[in-house]
Simulated scan of single mutants.
Amino acid sequence: MPLFKDGEGEGENDDKRELFDTWRFNEGRVLEIERPIRLSVKPAGIALEYMESMGIPVVHRRVVSLFERLGLQKEVQFIPVDVEGQTEPWFILNALRVIRCIDDARCDEVSYWGPEDGEPDRVGEYQNVRGLKVDPAKIGDADIFRPWGWLVVLIVSEHVKQAMETEGITGMKFLEV
């Protein structure tokens, strides 16, 4: 599901829409979105209530309602998006916390960028993490966050996981970390 900012419009100008900078949704901060975001679903099918577009969580209004009932408003930002072919409200789930919590010793494998990799501004950062494990002592009371250094992962507490399962939210896949 490609993520686009509305550009020149739709129809014959579809090729003029610019791809949206998705990395900023992993930074753990409130975002000010100036232009509407539109999602194109490929291939077309039944929409799940939790989907990802280029690694960015896109959720149905039922997820927003559940998170509000759970009191998670300070941990997430929901950014409205238009999903092609859908009339229901959809939102990007922007996690507002990044926590330094990866437990390198318990992960299956971790590797770091080094000087020899040709990315000087990334030296010392995670290059790869397999079998992610986190240190619960470093998480505190967080219910939803991204782990510092491996922002491609969204982590939720057991409480949030159980609430989503009880609510019957479709589309998630949970792995214990």
Rank of each mutant, 00 (worst) to 15 (best):
K5F: 14
D6E: 15
N26L: 13
E176C: 09
H60W: 06
A137I: 04
K74V: 00
Y112K: 11
G131K: 06
R17A: 09
K5Y: 14
E176A: 13
R24L: 12
L96D: 00
G140I: 06
R122S: 14
R61G: 01
G7Y: 01
S157V: 06
E176K: 13
Y112M: 06
L31T: 10
P115S: 14
E10F: 15
H159Y: 14
M54T: 09
L39E: 00
S65D: 15
R29W: 01
E88N: 04
K133A: 12
I169M: 10
G71L: 06
E49M: 11
V98F: 03
F91C: 00
M164P: 00
D6C: 00
E34P: 00
Q77K: 09
V123R: 06
I139N: 07
D108M: 10
L175Q: 14
E165I: 12
N128H: 10
L48D: 13
E119Q: 11
D143Y: 03
K74G: 02
H60D: 11
G168I: 05
P36F: 01
I46Q: 14
G140C: 07
V63H: 02
T166N: 12
D117A: 04
V30H: 12
V156G: 01
G149F: 03
P36I: 03
D104G: 02
W150T: 06
L132C: 04
V41Q: 07
I99Q: 08
I144C: 07
Y126M: 08
P36A: 06
N13F: 15
S111W: 05
I92M: 00
P57H: 10
G9C: 03
Y126D: 05
L154P: 00
C101L: 07
T22Y: 14
E84M: 02
G140P: 03
W113A: 01
E32M: 11
E12N: 11
V110A: 08
G28T: 11
A137V: 10
L48I: 01
Y126P: 04
W113M: 03
D104L: 01
L72K: 04
V110S: 04
D141I: 05
R29F: 05
K42S: 12
Q73V: 14
I139P: 03
V134D: 03
D121M: 13
E119R: 10
K5M: 11
R61H: 15
P89V: 02
P136T: 09
G171C: 06
E49Y: 05
V41T: 10
M51W: 00
I56N: 03
R106W: 02
I139V: 15
G85R: 11
A137S: 15
L96W: 02
T22L: 05
I144Q: 04
I56K: 03
W113C: 02
F78K: 00
G71M: 07
V41W: 02
S40M: 04
F20E: 08
A137E: 14
V153H: 11
P136Q: 11
